[in-house]
Simulated assay, not measured.
Amino acid sequence: MATYHIRRMTLPEVQRIAVEWAAAEGWNPGLEDATGFYETDPEGFLVGLLDEEPIACISAVRYPPDFGFIGFYIVRPEYRGQGYGFQIWQAAMRQLKNRNIGLDGVVAQQANYRRSGFQLAYNNIRYEDKASGHRLQEPSDHLIPCDRLPIESIAAYDRRFFPTARPAFLAAWLRQPDSRALAWVDQGQINGFGMIRPCRSGFKIGPLFADTADLAKQLFVALIQELPAETPFYLDVPAANPEAVALAERYGLKPVFETARMYTQDAPAIAVSGIFGVTTFELG
């Protein structure tokens, strides 16, 4: 009789299983996402094995003190509908017990997530375009590479837009190879920052946080202006921020799909009006 059990994944398994399966699902993960994800919570990635063969995975990442985020919920197609996914889902929920849990789920699965206690906060929209030569009219001394700033300062600004402080995640995330991370700094204060990173297809922008729509535009153009012409790029925008939607549409980006941002408790008190690009659907 076949045996099914669930255990934590190693970093190589996160890359080989979770990230590769996400790519096969068309989620277009970043080339170096696995390391940053894993460093955030090395115990947060689970794999379900049937006779030691991986058939399901999920991430249940813990952010101190009391927030968690679920992602990478994938069951291999030939094993769906047999209860294996629900078992690994339950394991993830147990791991995040007593926390406010967030996720970005497929919109069509909202009813299933509601049955596990999740409530809709807002939808996120993925926009897509190809680089076409947008450039800043003139360089700005306010644009500073993030690696020249203390991670504590970046994390303090980031905290406005995320339910809890996440310096460990940001330290790993912002050092991805071949990425570009810029902050807007005025009189020593960060007023916005963003990052663009290489993915299986093209590049993704995330995060893109800013005090105003004009600063978001400056950061957006600065991030994409180095891309070769016709390179695909993506921006994940909260539908609850009309200025973010307007920014995407102003530059001709087209919506390609949506996710439902949901939480098990009250939606966190974050400044959605300053979120012009979601960091990542997998870890928030």
Rank of each mutant, 00 (worst) to 15 (best):
A131H: 10
R94W: 01
N98I: 03
Q110V: 10
Q90M: 05
D147V: 06
R99Y: 09
R175G: 06
Y84C: 06
H134R: 09
Y157G: 00
Y157C: 00
A92L: 10
R126W: 09
W173H: 01
R160Q: 04
F118W: 15
A121D: 15
A156N: 07
K97Q: 15
A111S: 15
E152W: 06
R114V: 02
R94S: 06
D141A: 12
Q90I: 04
L103C: 10
E78C: 04
N98D: 15
Q87S: 06
R135C: 13
R115Q: 12
L143Q: 09
F169D: 05
P145V: 12
A92P: 08
N124E: 14
T164E: 07
A108C: 09
Q82K: 15
S153T: 11
Y157N: 00
G117P: 04
N98V: 04
A156R: 10
N98H: 13
P145Q: 11
I125M: 11
I101G: 07
L143R: 08
L182K: 02
L96Q: 05
P163R: 03
Q137S: 15
Q176V: 02
L149E: 05
N100M: 04
N100Q: 07
A172R: 05
H134E: 05
G81H: 06
L149G: 07
I144V: 15
H134V: 03
Y157V: 00
D129K: 15
A111M: 14
L149W: 03
E128H: 14
Q90F: 02
R148Y: 09
R166E: 01
R126E: 13
E152L: 08
F118G: 13
Y122G: 12
A168S: 05
A108L: 13
Y157A: 00
S116G: 03
S140Q: 11
R175M: 09
A165V: 01
R166W: 03
A111E: 15
I125K: 08
Q109W: 10
A131V: 13
Y127D: 14
D129N: 15
Y84N: 04
G133F: 02
A183I: 00
P150T: 11
Y127N: 14
Y122N: 12
Q109C: 09
Y84D: 06
A111C: 12
I125F: 09
A92Q: 11
P163V: 01
D104Q: 06
Y122P: 14
H134I: 04
P145E: 10
R80G: 08
L182I: 11
N100R: 10
R135K: 15
L143W: 08
A172E: 07
W89N: 02
E152Q: 12
N123E: 14
Y157I: 00
H142N: 11
F118C: 13
P150W: 12
P177W: 03
L103K: 10
L174C: 03
A155H: 00
I101M: 11
R166H: 02
S153N: 13
A183N: 00
R166Y: 01
R160S: 02
G102Q: 13
Y122D: 13
